[in-house]
Design a protein around this nucleic acid. Structure first.
Length: 552
RNA sequence: UGGGGUGUGGCCAAGUGGUAAGGCACCGGUCUCUGGAACCGGGAUUCAUUGGUUCGAAUCCAAUCUCCCCAGCCA
């Protein structure tokens, strides 16, 4: 995404039309309306980028509004995390932080207005009866209370509000069309009795408006011009319009639906994510394997990468599942330019350079980021004993293996070319150490040997390297679409058992990294310092591996 | 069986009657002291299908099919 503008889409076409027809006298105004009952995920990021990005593109405004119309499932913990996540992504609602609960009085008055106009009535069907009386595709619904006198509805509604009735005794229904082929329009409930404590309004109310009633009213109150939501609300649009048609707000918001994001190798439904957390399949909402914003943040994703991703996937109306490769591409691209390189050995294999004098030490010069000379260079100690990656040595190596092999030569990044002279094994035949010789003529920066080797490997100096813990993350699920499991199979049974591998004793160059700092471990991937890291125990999370075209 | 949507290469996605953008993935190649990055090149005779209109159709019309959503006092 460029600094100022996101890619166009069908919603912007609609706005362009509205602008051309001069329907938008006060400019474009959108809103991001999360329900505070869970953590935000990458799918919400798409919506956030769309809403805030659209406002920015048209020099309009975007509000943050919590849809807190159901007190039984909402918590302040979520409100705080949502605010933090939106802010972290880089969006600013300025002073326009709202709650649907701010409008409860107005919404209530709207309900009264509808009753007085004969457009809403008190129904006393219970939930089960309501289902039966709704009819079906072929049969129209009914309600014995549809023609209840206005005065009576008004009185009962007043009593409901006053707390005279138990939950479920009565509902307020919009009088629309019980025969509508769209079930949403079969006299939908717009108010229900719910004696529960509300985080914001506390015990002021015991009746709460339904989403379908509260949302259009909230939009109208805030002067929202384009109310962007996901596809499953398409059936609700006639009701959204009905509510506005039958009340008298000046503003006339318009609902537009787009397809929610799906990603391969992960799940996105709140219910499933909640299960992963509550049943301990992951550590928490911010587990680096989670597709939550907080999980991605802890994993080391940057807001820039996420926004770039959201811009690249586009906005349309067809259900689709984006390849997680694209997300990974976005973070690699971002970090390639920004992350300093260091050398880290995940599986150390000791190498003794037999012809290198004992006690001798040289300072090697390495660039911090070849993509950005401005990041400068650093010095690295080199001496007789080093560690290389165990996987960079192979006894019976295939031809295309460009790393170390018996009798073979390889370049140590930023240092010398070494030759493997002897392989030391333990009693079980495992390779435990290599004896190599180095060629003094091949020092980086002053190589006059004319020698060419095919491979360059990373290393750390045995004396100065520091041990760290590294979390290697893989996809949460091996299968592309874990939402779609065979009948009778629980999706948690398809979790990737190797989504987290902990390496306790990796070795890195001597550095003092800060929590959240990101690096490229040369030839391996991008890593971030986990928030749980301590001065005496550094923990890295692998953000994403480097691409690897080696076909071994 | 009713209503609402959707269908462009493996995955996203432009295209709005004038002869199929772009990205990811994939496959070649160049270059490289990261098998990274960068850079070149490759791919839809075809836009769900079948008809029709037109000089000309992914775009217009008709029919058919696919997949998704809807009968919560959830959002």
């Amino acid at each position: 995404m460029t600094e100022t503008e996101m890619a166009g889409n069908f919603i912007h076409d609609i706005i362009d039309d509205d602008l051309a027809a001069e329907r938008l006298t006060k400019g474009v105004h959108t809103r991001f309306p999360p329900e505070p009952n869970g953590y935000l995920h990458i799918g919400h990021a798409k919506s956030i980028c769309l809403n805030f990005g659209t406002a920015k593109k048209y020099k309009g405004l975007c509000n943050l509004r919590f849809d807190d119309t159901n007190p039984s499932r909402e918590e302040t913990e979520f409100i705080n995390s949502i605010k933090q996540d939106v802010r972290w992504l880089g969006f600013d609602w300025q002073n326009r932080l709202y709650f649907a609960s701010d409008y409860f009085q107005t919404i209530y008055e709207c309900a009264v207005q509808l009753i007085k106009a004969g457009k809403a009535y008190i129904c006393e069907l219970n939930a089960e009866q309501m289902r039966e009386y709704r009819g079906n595709i072929n049969v129209a619904g009914t309600s014995p209370y549809r023609d209840r006198p206005i005065e009576e509805s008004l009185r009962i509604f007043e009593e409901m509000k006053a707390g005279k009735y138990k939950d479920g005794t009565y509902t307020l229904r919009a009088k629309i069309d019980l025969a509508s082929p769209n079930f949403v329009m079969r006299d939908p409930v717009i108010y229900r009795i719910q004696h529960s404590y509300h985080q914001r309004t506390e015990n002021e109310w015991c009746i709460y408006p339904m989403y379908d009633f509260a949302h259009p009213i909230s939009d109208a109150i805030e002067g929202i011009t384009h109310s962007i939501c996901t596809l499953e609300f398409e059936n609700h649009r006639p009701l959204y319009d009905w509510v506005l048609d039958n009340l008298s707000f000046e503003a006339r918001p318009r609902q537009i639906e787009f397809a929610r994001l799906n990603l391969t190798h992960t799940v996105m439904s709140k219910r499933k994510l909640r299960r992963l957390v509550e049943e301990g399949y992951v550590n928490d909402w911010d587990d680096p394997r989670m597709p939550t914003i907080s999980g991605l943040r802890r994993r080391g994703y940057t807001p820039e990468a996420i926004k770039d991703f959201c811009d690249r996937i586009g906005v349309a109306k067809s259900n689709s599942t984006v390849d997680i490769n694209l997300l990974e591409h976005c973070i690699r691209e971002d970090l390639n330019k920004r992350a300093d390189r260091i050398m880290a050995v995940l599986q150390p294999l000791k190498v003794v350079i037999t012809n290198y004098p004992e006690g001798k030490k040289e300072w090697m010069i390495l660039e911090n980021n070849p993509e950005d000379a401005g990041r400068g260079k650093r010095q690295l100690a080199f001496s007789r004993e080093i560690y290389i990656e165990a996987t960079d040595f192979m006894e019976d190596a295939p031809k295309k293996f460009f790393r170390l092999r018996p009798e073979g030569e390889v370049r140590l990044k930023g240092a010398y070319i070494i030759k493997c002279e002897e392989v030391i094994k333990d009693a079980l035949g495992n390779v435990v150490e290599l004896h190599c010789t180095y060629d003094p003529e091949t020092k980086s920066g002053s190589d006059n040997s004319g020698k060419k080797v095919k491979g360059t490997i990373h290393w750390v100096n045995a004396k100065t390297a520091i041990p760290v813990k590294v979390n290697i993350y893989e996809h949460l699920f091996n299968n592309e679409n874990p939402e779609d499991v065979p009948e009778g199979v629980d999706f948690v049974d398809t979790l990737n058992p190797e989504s987290l591998k902990v390496i306790e004793n990796a070795l890195i160059e001597p550095i003092m990294p800060m929590v959240g700092e990101k690096f490229q471990f040369l030839r391996q991937g991008y890593f971030v310092v986990d928030q749980d890291a301590m001065p005496d125990e550094i923990i890295f999370n692998r953000i994403v591996s480097l691409k690897d075209s080696y076909k071994g």
